[in-house]
Each structure stands twice: as C-alpha cells, then as structure tokens.
C-alpha cells in the first residue's frame, strides 16, 4: 500500500534574484525541473534567498519539534522562526512541507484547522530489518495498537473502563506502575492524547461523567482501519472478512484514502 510517488519541483528552483544572497545556495543537482515561477505574493524587500533561508530553518525546527511527536502550532513557527515573515507563513510552511517530503520522506499535515496544528507523518512503512531504533517506544506503539483495535472493533469508540479492563487482562494493570510503560493511565490518557493518537472525551449525558476513547487524527494517518483489522485477525487467527461490518468499513476507508492520495493529498 505504498502511495504513488509524487514528483516535486526542486525547491532550489528560483528565479534569479538580484541583491544579497545571505544564504548558501541550494545545491544545483542535475537539470531537474526548474521554472517554478509561481505567482507568489511578492513582498517588497525580501529576496528569494531570504525566503529560502526561512524555509530551511523551518524544516530544521519542525524536525526537532517532531521528536516528541507533539503537534506543532503555526503560532510557534511564527514566533520562533518566521517572525517578520509572518505574512508569508503559508507559502513558507508549504515549501518546508515539500522539503520534508522530498528529503526525509515525512509528510507535514495540518491536523487542526482551528489552531493550525501540524504533525509529521512518516510516509515510509516499517520494514523487517530497516535499521530503525528499537526501544521502549516500540513497545508503546504495541500497546497503542491494542487500544486502537479495541476502539475500532467496538464501533469507533471505547469506554474508558473497558479499555482499562482489557489492558488488565493483558497484564498491563493501569493501577500499577508498569516496568516499560510507567504510569499506564498517564501514557494512554495524556501522552497518546497529546500526540494525537487518541481522543479522550466525556460521553454525553452521563452522570457521574464517563469517558471514552476515539482514534485521534495521527492514528488515522499513520495506520489504517484495514491494518488494524488485519492485526486483530492475526491475533485471533481469523480472516479479516469474518467481521463483516468492520471489514466493509475498512474497505471503504481504504478506497477513500486511495482516492485522496490520487488527487495529490
């Protein structure tokens, strides 16, 4: 399920611009596509090189910020990097996104239109023997996978109490300190939620209040309903299609994301 490769115009493509070049020039590799004279808002005194410099700084900023997997707000980008290039924020963010994808295989996605929060999604699937670091975060992702499965199989939401029960059955007691996960409740309710893997909401009209978990936007980007269903099927040694409604939903989801990828996003 690799996505079709998208060809990006080289980011170095820039019209020759008079004036000081404060930045090191972008590498001139081969004769890739060059003339991307997009009609951008042309601000008064900024050279293309200065804008490129901001783009490059933003890329590094996003990479550093992404290490904790927390969403990055546009306001933070403006405050730390863009500063008086604020009026060009959209253009610069978009170009930074193109570099992240072209060079690092990471996709910059806006997951919250209201607060303009962004996350980076790895477009490359993990492979057996791909050399990526194995650590406790791999175990955390395993735990997350269990919770995502539960949510999906229960019709896209799962009560908090149910989640804790299931984890307890798997010998991950949320009341006790776990040797890999530490405070399990905190990891699930706090870390996974802040990283946008999960959503944690009050169930309407419950008194005393009850809470439920849903998939967060990052989960939908990094995995898929079909992948989760296959995971469940493997554990239970059944065919994915034996869960009729989940299977159909996962198929629909696949078709939808395939057509979304086809249209370029």
């Amino acid at each position: 399920n690799t996505k079709p490769p998208r060809v990006f115009p080289r980011d170095s493509a820039r019209s020759p611009e008079p004036g000081p070049t404060a930045t090191p020039p972008m590498p001139s590799t081969s004769s890739s596509s060059s003339s991307s004279s997009q009609a951008q808002k042309k601000p008064a005194k900024r050279t293309e090189a200065q804008i490129q410099q901001k783009v490059n700084e933003l890329v590094q900023f996003l990479l550093v910020k992404d290490q904790k997997k927390l969403p990055i707000r546009r306001a933070d980008m403006v405050k730390t990097i863009l500063q008086d290039y604020k009026d060009l924020a959209s253009v610069i963010i978009e170009r930074a996104g193109r570099i992240l994808e072209e060079v690092f295989g990471l996709q910059l996605r806006e997951i919250d239109q209201k607060y303009h929060a962004y996350i980076l999604i790895n477009k490359l699937e993990r492979l057996e023997g791909d050399g990526m670091k194995m650590d406790e975060s791999v175990a955390k992702m395993g735990l997350l996978m269990v919770i995502l499965s539960l949510i999906f199989m229960k019709g896209n939401s799962a009560r908090e109490s149910l989640v804790w029960d299931v984890l307890k059955k798997l010998r991950v007691d949320p009341e006790k300190r776990h040797k890999t996960f530490g405070d399990v409740k905190k990891l699930v309710k706090d870390e996974f939620v802040r990283q946008k893997y999960l959503e944690y909401n009050r169930v309407p009209h419950t008194e005393p209040p009850e809470y439920e978990f849903l998939w967060g936007p990052r989960a939908a980007h990094e995995t898929s309903k079909m992948q989760v269903l296959r995971f469940v099927a493997k554990i239970q040694n059944r065919e994915p299609s034996s869960w009729v409604s989940q299977y159909n939903e996962a198929l629909q989801d696949e078709t939808a994301s395939a057509s979304a990828a086809g249209t370029g996003n």
Binding site: D66, Q67, K69, L106, L120, N122, E125, R126, L127, E128, M132, K133, M134, D135, S137, V138, M141, G142, L144, M145, L148, Y197, A219, E222, T223, Q227, R230, F231, K234
Partner: peptide, 15 residues
C-alpha cells in the same frame, strides 16, 4: 543504547 523514537506505529505484520 537507549534510543530515540521511531516514528510510526509499527505495523503488526512485516510482510
């Protein structure tokens, strides 16, 4: 050594 984070939900199946 104790490492950094990989970035993706490890998909259950290598193949």
């Amino acid at each position: 050594r104790i490492p950094r984070t990989p970035r993706r939900i490890s998909s259950s199946e290598p193949k």
